[in-house]
Simulated assay, not measured.
Amino acid sequence: MVISCLGYVCFSFAVATAKDLQTIMICRFFAGFIGAAPLVVAPAVMADLFSAKIRGTAISIFAMILFGGPMLAPIIGGFTVKNPDMGWRWTSYLCGIIGCAALVMNTFILEETHHPIILVRKAEMLRRRTGNWGIYAPHEELTLSLKEIVEKNIARPMKLLFTEPIILLISIYNAFIYGMLYMFLTAIPLIFSVNYRFSPGVAELPYISMLIGVFTGGLIIIYFERRYNIAMDNNGGRPLAEERLPPMMIGSVTFVIGIFWLGWTGSYPEHVHWIVPTIGAAFVGNGLILIFLPCMNYIIDCYLYLAASALAGNTFLRSSFGAAFPLFSMQMFVNMKIQWASTLVGCIGVAMIPVPFLFYKYGKKIREKSKFAM
């Protein structure tokens, strides 16, 4: 986390001070490449810190902030670029400044959570206090060759992703939803700047509606945590992975409603008031979080001892979608027209509605056949 955050800060400031386009592109790449650790490590830290009873609530807060960033950033960026005293460079300066705050907190506040490393440090402290050099932690005897590092830290996430049906199908759904988030970072300004002729910055304000939807979805998930805890108590305290899925069932429907609502009402500004598509954006945000978050909790419950590797595979696919979708979203919404592009996306969403229902019914049987699942 510390190394990743430090690299992100350095390359963010490098983008802000770049003299040419090549430098911007190279530094943007390394800011993402080095700075990606929190996307994988943070949920694994939650798995280390919190028991199954409260882990869902903790990850809910984490996910609301995770989605809140991409929704607030275009608003801040729009007004930053619009300000003649600041300009586009300050979008990267602000990222670097926020990264500096995170770096300080990661370095001085966040303590190690990985259990084997904690035991190593305790063993070292006991050796110094007692003078008994026979005290050691099991992790100290662990030596990894380059081959083992590649197999466990690089190959295993990919192996889990493509050989475990639960991770693969949930990750595809999760990645599609995450791609939708970044696609609508393009669509919403297009609807409100082109159709409704809002000025830069103002055209991004409807993201606040989507953010409200995210927070309402987060509250729904926290409410369902009580249901999950009751089911877990009735199961002798053992986690029930499939009980994480009911919020996803709700989200699969609200997400599709929001897409059709936003796309069709936002296409006719001369007949429809701007508040109508703005309300539709709240349903999109609500569906996004209700699908995204249970996916993460479900994967952690299914693969608790391999949570970091399972989430790494999930993050790889999810981030690939998040990077790819904005590359064609502008062309798609312009050439197909907003309403028909939204219809295409909405139909894909409709096709994916059965996913949480099928896993709720057959997930346990699939896990019983897995070598890695709990």
Score class of each variant (00 low, 15 high):
257 I>M: 12
295 C>H: 04
317 L>R: 04
15 V>S: 04
358 L>E: 04
142 L>G: 01
110 L>G: 05
105 M>S: 04
341 A>S: 12
149 I>N: 05
128 R>P: 03
124 E>Q: 12
105 M>R: 06
236 G>H: 08
117 I>W: 10
14 A>F: 08
354 P>M: 00
331 Q>M: 10
85 D>W: 04
323 A>D: 00
249 M>T: 05
330 M>D: 03
100 C>Y: 01
178 Y>C: 12
108 F>I: 02
162 F>G: 13
226 R>D: 02
111 E>S: 13
30 F>R: 02
194 V>E: 15
326 P>I: 03
311 L>M: 06
191 I>D: 04
187 A>Q: 05
225 E>R: 12
321 F>G: 01
180 M>H: 14
313 G>P: 06
254 T>R: 05
354 P>V: 00
331 Q>T: 07
128 R>W: 04
363 G>N: 00
38 P>Q: 07
206 P>A: 03
126 L>V: 03
98 I>N: 04
209 S>A: 13
306 L>C: 04
61 I>C: 02
329 S>W: 03
51 S>C: 07
149 I>T: 13
316 F>C: 00
174 N>I: 15
30 F>P: 05
5 C>K: 09
171 S>D: 00
172 I>C: 02
215 F>Q: 09
289 I>S: 04
138 P>C: 12
227 R>L: 06
112 E>L: 03
132 N>R: 15
157 P>M: 01
152 K>M: 12
295 C>R: 07
319 S>V: 08
255 F>W: 11
57 T>K: 10
83 N>W: 14
15 V>D: 09
309 S>K: 02
289 I>M: 10
139 H>F: 11
345 V>M: 13
177 I>G: 11
22 Q>N: 13
172 I>M: 12
142 L>N: 08
212 I>R: 01
256 V>Q: 01
207 Y>R: 09
270 E>P: 13
260 F>P: 08
136 Y>I: 10
2 V>E: 10
310 A>R: 03
308 A>K: 10
158 M>K: 06
159 K>N: 07
198 F>A: 15
113 T>R: 01
356 P>I: 08
271 H>M: 14
18 A>Y: 03
17 T>V: 04
372 F>N: 06
87 G>T: 09
371 K>C: 07
253 V>A: 13
228 Y>S: 11
